[in-house]
Amino acid sequence: MPLPPLAARRHGLGVIASIAFQNFKALRNTQVALAPFNLVIGPNGSGKTSLIESLQRLRTLSSLPLTDADGRAQLGGAPEITFSFVPPFDGIVVRLGCTSETVCDTLRVEPAGAAAWPALRRELGTIRAYVLDHEAMAGASRRDEGDELGPDGGNLAAVLVRLRERAPESFTALVAEMLRITPEFQSLELVEHADGRAEFALRLAENGDVPAAELSQGMLYLIGVLALAFDPDPPAIVCIEEVDRGIHPRMLREIRDALYRLSYPKAFGSDRRPVQIVTTSHSPYFIDLFREHPEEIIISQKHGRAAHFERLADRKDLPELLREGSLGDMWFSGILGGVPEER
């Protein structure tokens, strides 16, 4: 089934143009066009995490060698996820075949033997998904495991140490941004132990260090997001669940800006390649920040056990709605859908 291209794709931003789901968990029959930046909102159990999971499976399966089984068509009714891509990979379609809702073990590339597949495969191999865990982030980590942030951010200290070594300008910029956002601190202190472990602390402007273990959840998440935003060689696609978690509503703009830094580096004076972002939120305050760019919002609608995706920008009455109130309030009220069902 041909999938509608998104206008933004014509500008060559991002990697994935769209994803179509058949019988994959709650996503029975739906498709979603992806923009360079995608904020997915909706009730619990409406397929937000499944969307991110599909990208993780794409990464895993694309890293394996293609086998004969990968060329076989799926049996009717079996779960299938179909990916299409932006230029220069727009001639390729990738289908993931699943034997159950939890086991997807085949990957089919169409057309078979596509010349661009090896390059696309390298891009897909960099997909990263994060569910940041403040307890893990606060701990010490081995400094030789700091090449990239782990899925829970548990190696944050090592990532900061490595960043300072390999890209001191980026590290300096990260620290400067953090101190601008949280002026109660005056520096980020890295501690490297003789046994190869690394830790970090923040020094208060009024003196005294706050070790990572004593930092607030929100502060740790902020540093984690900044570590991603200032990575000089970021992945092609980054997924972050509940990016607003633990963050004061007045600080959410800074989180959005950090993610925009990844998706729209030129707007931030960087010539680094753009990163496609897929993130989720349950915060009306975070959603408010997309009033100027409602095309970046995907609403997952849940009906019984099935769910489907809708682009907010596809609503014909959106301009009128935006005149009446904030996006967050509109979403909470139920006007936009994407709210829990009630009996």
């Binding site: 703009r253 800006d257 925009y260 830094r261 729209y264 030129k266 707007a267």
Partner: peptide, 8 residues
């Protein structure tokens, strides 16, 4: 100069 300015 951009439609996505940072806060600073």
């Amino acid at each position: 100069g951009t439609d996505r300015p940072s806060l600073p």
